[in-house]
Amino acid sequence: MNGAVEVVRAGALTTVQDAGRIGWAHLGVPRAGALDAPARRLANRLAGNGADAAVLETTVTGCAVRPDRPVVAVVGGAPCRVTVDGRPVAWGTPVRVPAGAVLDAGPAVRGLRSYLAFGGGLLPEPVLGSRSADLLSGLGPAPLRDGDVLPLGQAPAGLPGADAVPWPGAPAELVLPLHLGPRHTWFTDEALRTLTTAEYRVSAHSNRIGLRTRGPALNRAREGELPSEGMVLGAVQVPPDGRPVVFLNDHPTTGGYPVVGVVHETALAGAAQAVPGTRVRFVCAGRDAGRSGTGATPLP
């Protein structure tokens, strides 16, 4: 047996996440996976795991677990107070947790989501090749509850090479580089100017499905419903209220509201850590050269 961790305090919303469920979007299966992918990779590396091992992703209030074997653990992502049996230990670096001791990742001091990686990784049953919880369609392990037990993988041989690395902080201002399209022509020129010049704020209604915003509404140049079409990670969908929503990992695979642009994937880790009220700026990353065709629509 490789041991297990027992959930002592599940926190507001703690889920198991790995690199996600890739390759099933055509069946309506969201990708899921850790929202702050660089933090997941870094925590795993420090714990001596492969980058894609399954970790815990907390939301705002942290969580606490008790391993039944000694384990190397790393708490990264959103900074927080970390203790082992009540004794403070380092955040963001590997710590040894004895068998039966309680590792507690406290509420996030900055940012929203902390990541707990364990040497050997977490091994709940995979679904379609991933151990990630998908909160849109309910695939994968359910959000943690007190008393849940999660199996651990075999502890990696030897100690991880790195012991301290720089972690990016939560953004004071969230700058999102935006590639226009595919449906920017559904919006007025004024709306496109508004999007890239006005100040938006992260809405408290954001979740793993999307980062919702508060700010000026974007007016459409054409009305009507968009026949359902495929959606990508980072798509900025504009629902009828006109406030852009940035699709995160649990986003629906198809949607019927127009996507004005797509945020560059590397900016989404910041979106995962931006607390409600954070200023959001969409900056134009370019009008892509992808457009091509024999259709009648001219280049905008």
Binding site: G224, V232, G234, G256, V262, R291, G293
Partner: peptide, 29 residues
């Protein structure tokens, strides 16, 4: 909510490039 009347047209003898438009959807799509 897929729109009503997004009808499939009757079968035809194939389609050429006419009526195909390729739109950008971010750097990877």
């Amino acid at each position: 909510g897929a729109s009503a009347g997004a009808g499939a047209s009757a079968g035809s003898g194939g389609h050429t490039g006419a009526g195909i438009e390729v739109l950008p959807a971010g750097p990877g799509a």
